[in-house]
Design a protein around this nucleic acid. Structure first.
Ligand SMILES: [Mn+2]
Ligand SMILES: [Mn+2]
Ligand SMILES: [Mn+2]
Ligand SMILES: [Mn+2]
Lengths: 220, 220
DNA sequence: ATCTATTTTTAGACTTATCTAAATATTAGT
DNA sequence: ACTAATATTTAGATAAGTCTAAAAATAGAT
């Protein structure tokens, strides 16, 4: 089965919005992202559901099916590979790139994208650090960043620590943080570089001394 | 104003079909080329006429307006530049290339195509000898080839001669060949390198001695 | 010049993607 | 629990591109 550009853009949008909350994506969030009306979104969700690309129940939000997710990941692969090409080989810069990649990502040829991948030397990250899935849809190991450098708003995961004292370890435990814990970076306060995170519904404050010793994933 | 993929494909088809007859292109010819129905063609011609991209009067066939021609030539430029990229840089071959270029030609970014042109070194011909118009829509001088070297199956045109005797000139005249005459190279016979061409519906044989003295265009 | 075959256009219908306005369901505040 | 605000869905329209079947125009052949 084949998808229209529009369907592909919806699938990608659902994928991206899903990464910041494990509940289904709301109709309005999708409408805002797609710059369209909620009613149009409802129409499209019905169609995608009929094609078994999403799980959708009215009023309950939407999630991607296995198949829908595969397609979304493939579009992201194409988008990022084209961005690498545009930036590294054609000398593009900044926002221009994204707009053009937004169209190129829908060109439908497996041969094309696999050869482009080879031509580019199988890059693992696009120029903004976004990970590029391989032709099987597998993402590379996420880049690690210290929590004090992570962009505010990111959903992330504890990947490691750089301080191993008992005091630090027990402090983390009390906060509910351990290797693999997923959380959301809500805010960073300039005056002391402390951060506010949300994990499992709880809001927690971390001082700069804590944040600078935690490695977190930089993907998604 | 912007065009849909479909409109662009129609404009390109009209352009190509126009090159072998100075009358308007017929609805049926277009329908066959576009692999669609005559009624669909009529619908589209009305729309293109409303946009002033074609000159159309019912039952009289269609020709491109100045603006329509500019668009068609630009699509051809994009198509051929992408084909050069696919063949020379991604290692594509043959028919694969054409199908992918058929989609890439509709990506809408002047910056993209001009940078691609630069990246490719401003090629003047695609790998099959098709001339590539520049960013102003100007085609390069067509390549000239001796008729005895032209690929069988080509449609071509007399571009010059390398023998100027009265005997040769009158022979050409009798055959119906003169500067600018369009014809179709149907066959070449190995044993004496003579060729069979078709011009204005007539089939004509030319000996190797004649063929080797005629320059023909190598584009189209 | 008339009739016939072919080409082209029209009429009416369908699909996809969109919209506005109205109806309905959910959520949040009291 | 009730009500008000918000979110979502439905109903009904529109525009693009296509199709089939039927009507109309043109071209070809006697
Ligand atoms: Mn991008
Ligand atoms: Mn896109
Ligand atoms: Mn081609
Ligand atoms: Mn095309």
């Amino acid at each position: 089965m084949s998808q229209s550009f529009t369907e592909e853009n919806y699938l990608k949008a659902i994928y991206k919005l899903s990464r910041r909350s494990d509940k289904g994506v709301s109709t309005n969030a999708l409408a805002e992202r797609m710059e369209t009306k909620a009613s149009s979104v409802t129409d499209m969700l019905k169609k995608l559901a009929a094609k078994k690309l999403v799980n959708y129940e009215k009023y309950q939000g939407v999630t991607l099916s296995k198949k829908g997710q595969q397609i979304a990941v493939d579009i992201i692969r194409k988008h990022r590979l084209w961005e690498v090409f545009l930036l590294e080989h054609l000398g593009f810069s900044g926002e221009e790139v994204h707009q053009v990649a937004e169209e190129l990502e829908h060109i439908n040829s497996e041969t094309l994208i696999d050869r482009l991948d080879k031509f580019l030397g199988y890059p693992k990250y696009d120029p903004h650090g976004g990970p590029i899935p391989d032709s099987k849809g597998v993402f590379p190991e996420p880049k690690r960043v210290k929590l004090d450098e992570l962009e505010v708003g990111r959903k992330t995961k504890v990947m490691g620590i750089t301080e191993h004292s008992d005091a630090f370890l027990s402090h983390l435990k009390k906060l509910g943080l351990e290797l693999g814990t997923n959380f959301h970076l809500k805010e960073r306060f300039d005056f002391d570089r402390s951060v506010e995170i949300e994990l499992n519904g709880k809001t927690v404050q971390l001082s700069y001394d804590v944040a600078k010793n935690i490695f977190v994933s930089h993907n998604s």
